[in-house]
Design a binder for these strands. Structure first.
Length: 476
RNA sequence: GGCGCCGUACCCAAGCGGUAAGGGAGAGGUCUGCAAAACCUUCAUGCGGCGGUUCGAUUCCGCCCGGCGCCUCCA
């Protein structure tokens, strides 16, 4: 096991990682709310969670990765968010809320799969854990942290010392804070609902029976309940988006710890936003980019993954197509390099135990262990591949090893044929004929003729490359 | 109004007290009939501005300018 340091939002500092149970990591990563397609900003978050789990494993820890799927509540209503259109069109297709949830859940895993994001060990849906949530709320209630008002069960923030510590909230400051929701039933503006029987949404689609009446759970309880169910009452890492610090995670801590009476999450890791042009990409502000829109524009999903790896998870990442182009060019170049290495790697590559390659691999591990410094780790990959002192088999084996974390499909890239983009057999034969024709022209030193054929093919989207062993081609 | 984050070359982006990682683009070169590809080399005395602390600051402190996020579902 490699020692690791992580930046804990709780305390805002780099801390040495000491899991509750040595060598084992209970990791809960916030999952999607499945009421729309994930946009590339969301996806950045899941790339982060994925690389974190991969890195922990690479560094010798046994990881149990749990992710929630939020498929409950607030699917109807919320009409000022602009998402209504999505729901409405789904409704027009005669689908239920659960069908919508299933549709977007499938879409989510399709996207994450394309990005080489490994499926977490446990994927849990909120709707399948309402009983667990009710049990947890009962414990909170039994411990005296709740009150019932206006049909809803509230969490009483004033009973929980240290509320808001994660977010550095100052409860005294909230007064003038312009936009706190006015809920006459709340004793304190920061109180939040654990169980609704009367919500702001008239036609809540899903309701369950509970000791407090028929209704549905509050926004925050699912993560507390499910993380405890699958990881125990104290977990090592909880990761999520930076926007969740002040409300969602703050409330999760309050309710979890008031139920169990013990610390809940040891290390809080928060990923920063992907920003584009004038600000973050959000579901509610109209148009946003999906993975699909990138692939439609001719990019491969892993180009986007590579792009994400180029920035540290705690920094905002500036998205642009220019930047994505750069990522694509880098990844292609990487593939080219690996293919060359593979053709030179005589012995079957094995992970280098010593030698110069080991130096790069050690640096790679050290960088991962230092708050998941993926940009550094990526630079180590380039260093390994460009180092003249590293033999081709070592370089190749080292790259494959690093790819356990990077997830860039390096082995596939190395083994891909140059003409990876296949044409139909007829088309291929036709192209081969033209090449043969050109070869004859070249032999006769009829350069004009040879160049004309090359230009014609280029215009048709076929790129010719003359090499020592003849001419190869690929579709552009 | 409150809280937090950030400003590094043409672009993306690391570094966060010891003299600027990496990638892309650009430039030069090798190779080639010419290209393309590949490979090699090169590319910030400088890190928004002004002060301060220090032997030494891109890194710490203060102020200013500019950008972003959260406080409402949101990664």
């Amino acid at each position: 096991m490699h020692p690791i340091r992580l930046f804990n939002t709780l305390g805002r500092e780099l801390q040495e990682f000491q899991p509750v149970h040595p060598g084992k990591v209970g990791f809960y990563g916030c999952g999607p709310t499945v009421y729309n397609f994930a946009h590339i900003g969301n996806l950045r978050m899941y790339v982060f969670e994925d690389t974190l789990a991969r890195a922990l494993r690479y560094l010798g820890y046994e990881v149990r990765h749990v992710m929630n799927i939020t498929d409950v509540g607030h699917l109807t209503g919320d009409d000022d968010s602009g998402d209504d259109k999505m729901v409405k069109s789904a409704r027009e297709r005669g689908q239920s809320v659960l069908e919508i949830a299933r549709f977007y859940t499938d879409a989510f895993f399709r996207d994450t799969g394309l990005l080489n994001i490994r499926r977490p060990d446990v994927v849990c849906k909120a709707t399948e854990h309402v009983a667990d949530m009710i049990d947890l709320i009962r414990r909170i209630e039994a411990n005296g942290y709740t009150y019932f008002a206006g049909g809803n069960l509230y969490f009483d923030v004033s009973r929980f010392p240290g509320y808001g510590r994660l977010a550095l909230l100052n409860l005294e400051d909230l007064k003038a804070g312009a936009r706190i929701e006015v809920d006459a039933n709340k004793r304190n503006p920061y109180d939040f609902v654990l169980w609704f029987t009367k919500g702001k949404f008239e036609n809540q689609a899903l309701v369950w029976d509970s000791p407090w009446g028929s209704g549905y759970p509050g926004w925050h309880i699912e993560c507390s309940a499910m993380s405890m169910k699958y990881l125990g009452e104290s977990i090592d890492i909880h990761a999520g988006g930076i926007d969740h610090i002040p409300i969602h995670h703050t409330n999760e801590i309050a309710q979890s710890e008031s139920a169990t009476g013990k610390p809940w999450v040891k290390y809080w890791l928060h990923g920063e936003f992907l920003v584009m042009g004038k600000g973050k990409m959000s579901k509610s502000s109209g148009s946003f980019l999906t993975l699909r829109s990138l692939t439609d524009a001719g990019y491969e999903p892993l180009d986007y993954r590579y792009f994400c790896l180029g920035g540290h998870y705690r920094s905002q990442l500036q998205f642009s197509f220019e930047a994505l182009d750069s990522a694509r060019a880098s990844r292609r170049s990487l593939g080219e390099r690996l293919r060359t290495l593979r053709s030179q790697a005589e012995p079957a590559p094995a992970v280098p135990a010593d030698g110069k390659a080991r130096v790069w691999l050690d640096a790679f591990a050290d960088h991962l262990a230092e708050d998941l410094a993926l940009p550094r780790a990526l630079a180590d990959l380039w260093g390994l591949l460009r180092d003249p002192e590293v033999t081709p088999p070592e370089a190749l084996a080292g790259a494959y090893d690093m790819d356990r974390v990077l997830g860039l499909g390096l082995r596939e890239a190395a083994e891909a044929a140059p003409e990876e983009k296949a044409a139909s057999p007829e088309r291929a034969a036709q192209i081969e004929r033209r090449i043969a024709e050109r070869a004859a022209a070249k032999k006769a030193k009829d350069w004009a003729r040879a160049d004309a054929i090359r230009d014609e093919l280029k215009a048709e989207g076929v790129l010719l490359t003359d090499g020592p062993s003849g001419t190869t081609w690929k579709l552009s």
